[in-house]
Design a protein around this nucleic acid. Structure first.
Lengths: 266, 266
DNA sequence: ATAATTATGATCATTTGTGATTGTTTGTGA
DNA sequence: TCACAAACAATCACAAATGATCATAATTAT
């Protein structure tokens, strides 16, 4: 990874956190502590961030909502390093120049950091994802129109003739509340509605879901397993769930957490 | 392959990547590393790109948006206190519960501060206005969908069937590059396009324009004076311009700067 | 056609960036 | 206050990137 890419990713991450630790940044960029420290020192000199003991913090005054907002911090607990690994694996499927769709959610939100070093066309219905990528990357951002629902952090139009119908991408990335033999599950009707709007706008459907999602069963079925091209999850997935996916013809990518990532988690 | 050919290929490639590596360019042009390095050095001298370790990157500075962004700060100089007074007067026309449309622009952006205390439904095509109101107010925010143009800070869809057509408000607020007997003038075709999309979605059209705009004459006519309901300007407006507006049946509101405003400006 | 000039590719020495190791400083809790 | 752990700085070794040099191929002028 090149220095500039790391710098972008670091700056992207620092904006979200009160203080980004060195080990978090090590995990995120898959480079060494020494390199991260040097990067932080450099960016500190350039006044792009402020160096503090343990890591770095944003030079800007803290924001109200956004990726670091309420929903995010509630889910922030145990699974962040897994989500990060999954999001990293998702972004590794992308190349500069690709057009992709990203649905809002706490797991997909983690994609913004590795995406900060890319140059792609990204369509999203997530205001915070758009906000972050607009401010911290050179990607072209396309946004669905409608009402911004603060609770779910998504933009949703009640109308059929919305601009979403005019976008098509090879790949769409989305999260999920739960996965079972019945298909993808969600709990919130608004999120169902948002995802349904997007689900037909891409050829491949790639689901980001940590292994805990296989135990969760929610009330609303979003789509059948067969519609899913690929699921990216972590290595705690059970064999019976592997079999279930295999039977449905779903590709499985197991994102390995790096050693540093596990340290952060532990 | 000729030198110029390579240069074109390199420049084209660099624009689409955060950082283009030497080896990528070698593969792309089927020439040697030495040649690519020489090319990069040459183009760096010509300031067509920036040479970085490992390759090259676009010379265009990463464009950050936001209310404090580049475009805004360029115009930030002399007229802020007038713009603020005009924006305040505009917000005074609004009541809690109203639905309004706000078009992007440096003057209309000033409305966000008084709007922070309101509880309204606000439709806008300006990403920074939406961003600010979402983060700092309880207003309901509705956003047009499409591509986010970083330069102009607006969201614009190339399609007709966009969600804009589904919103209608009593009042729409917009800025202008210039005002003359021919009507409202703008310089940027993209902004014309964005404003045209919105201009029929409201009953009243309220234009925010400090008095300097009456001297400016741009190239593109947006609409006739007769379409305008009200113009809000400052007390430096000339009598002949007052007469012009009166003849066209346009209401005029002259926003007075308060003592505090002038302090802030100074 | 031949010489001169220029562009290109290859080689090698040098510089720079990175990761690992080690020792020092800082913060925390007994 | 002391002991311990985390964070840090300094150093070294290695790999990648670079610059300089020279030989060769392509182009141009005579």
């Amino acid at each position: 990874m090149h220095e500039n890419e790391r710098h972008r990713i670091i700056l992207s991450f620092v904006e979200e956190k009160p203080v980004a630790t060195v080990s978090e940044l090590v995990a995120l960029t898959e480079s060494s502590e020494a390199t991260i420290r040097r990067d932080i020192a450099t960016l500190h000199m350039q006044k792009k961030l402020r160096r503090v003991r343990g890591g770095a913090e944003s030079i800007n005054p803290p924001q109200f909502v956004g990726l670091a907002g309420r929903t995010y911090s509630v889910n922030e607990g145990i699974n962040v390093s897994k989500k990060r690994a999954i999001a990293n694996a998702a972004v590794q499927l992308c190349d500069d120049g690709d057009a992709i769709i990203i649905n809002g959610g706490t797991t997909t939100s983690q994609m913004v950091h590795p995406l900060a070093a890319k140059r792609m066309q990204i369509f999203t219905n997530s205001f915070p994802i758009a906000e972050h990528l607009l401010n911290h990357s050179k990607n072209t951002i396309m946004l669905s129109g409608g009402i911004i629902y603060r609770e779910q952090n998504i933009i949703l139009s009640p109308f059929e003739n919305d601009v979403t119908r005019n976008f098509y991408a090879k790949r769409m990335f989305m999260g999920a509340q739960g996965i079972c033999a019945q298909g993808l599950m969600e709990a919130d009707p608004l999120i169902i509605q948002a995802e349904e709007k997007l689900i037909n706008q891409s050829e491949e459907l790639i689901v980001l879901a940590d292994s805990s999602k296989f135990k969760t069963r929610s009330s609303l079925i979003l789509c059948a397993l067969e519609r899913i091209t690929t699921i990216i999850t972590d290595d705690s997935i059970r064999d019976e769930d592997r079999t279930m996916l295999e039977d449905a013809g779903v590709d499985l990518i197991v994102a390995k957490e790096t050693a540093q990532m596990q340290q952060v988690a532990g």
